[in-house]
Amino acid sequence: MSSEKTTAIVLRVVDFSETSVVTTLFTEHFGKVSALAKGARRPKGPFENAIDLLAVARIVFIRKSSDALDLLTEAKLERRFRSAERSLERLYAGFYLAELLTEMTDTGDPHPELFHASNRVLAELDAGSPVAPLVAGIELFALRDLGHLPLLTECAICGNELVKAARYPFALVAGGVLCPRCRPGQRHVVSVRAEVIEAMHGLSQAAPETWSSIALEPKLAGEMRAVTQHYLAHHLGHRCKMHRWLSGRPA
């Protein structure tokens, strides 16, 4: 067993006993970890209220060599997620980010760039930056960083550069746009406006620090989210639960 120090985003907290919780953390250096935090539910516990959903904290944990839970020994709060004080939309965006990181990442697989991008999105949500480009940006960044970004400038099957058109077929199974020659016979294909594909490509290549300054017209942002959500649902095997709340459809 070894003791490790890192920075973490709290993704999930589940009661374990009258005094302890099990927390899922997305860490800068060790990827996703699940750890037992003994005494976290005590009024004057050892973690200084650092184990709150979407809080960012400096932690110390003991890594277990077996399938047992890691043991969280220290947590010092760096930043609390306060977007609930601003709007439900920002709160839901934060919850959606936690769901994405939980569902898309594997335990013990570090992705430091994704950690920093996610940390920035949480800070930008708290600061009042526009929600739509932040959500779209982190979706595409996660897909790219984890090796699942769809092809948006060339055919996903033959690799040929796309010929300019008003709309493109987007294949969920093939993983991107298709040329007219490869389209026949493909399943799970949706037709997408060229402007949407271009916006997705541009945002997927943009640095996280620029996302909040990117203006997305509401209709364009909605179509981007629909395409990305269909693609994510195909990749994950299910639709993200928080998507309907972000779309304004809680039912």
Rank of each mutant, 00 (worst) to 15 (best):
C158G: 10
R239N: 14
E195M: 02
W245C: 04
P110N: 07
R249K: 10
G185I: 02
K5M: 11
L77R: 11
E198S: 08
C155E: 01
V196P: 02
L97K: 01
F30L: 04
G31P: 04
A57R: 06
T6Q: 01
A199I: 05
V227A: 11
K219D: 15
M104E: 15
A136S: 10
H235R: 10
V33E: 13
G94Y: 13
T102M: 12
C179P: 05
R42S: 12
R120V: 02
L149P: 05
L72Q: 12
E154R: 07
S204K: 05
P133S: 03
N49Y: 12
R167C: 10
E89R: 01
R239M: 13
Y96R: 13
V173D: 15
A221N: 07
Y231F: 15
G31Q: 03
V22D: 09
A199G: 02
T19C: 03
A206H: 04
R187A: 11
E154S: 07
F61M: 12
L125S: 10
V190W: 12
E198K: 12
S213V: 03
Q205R: 14
S83F: 08
A136G: 08
R225N: 04
E195W: 01
L77Q: 13
H235F: 15
R86Q: 12
C182R: 00
T23A: 15
V190Y: 11
S3A: 08
H116Q: 12
A233K: 05
C179S: 06
F47D: 14
K38V: 09
Q229A: 07
P112C: 00
A206E: 13
N49T: 08
C155H: 00
T6C: 02
V21N: 06
G128N: 11
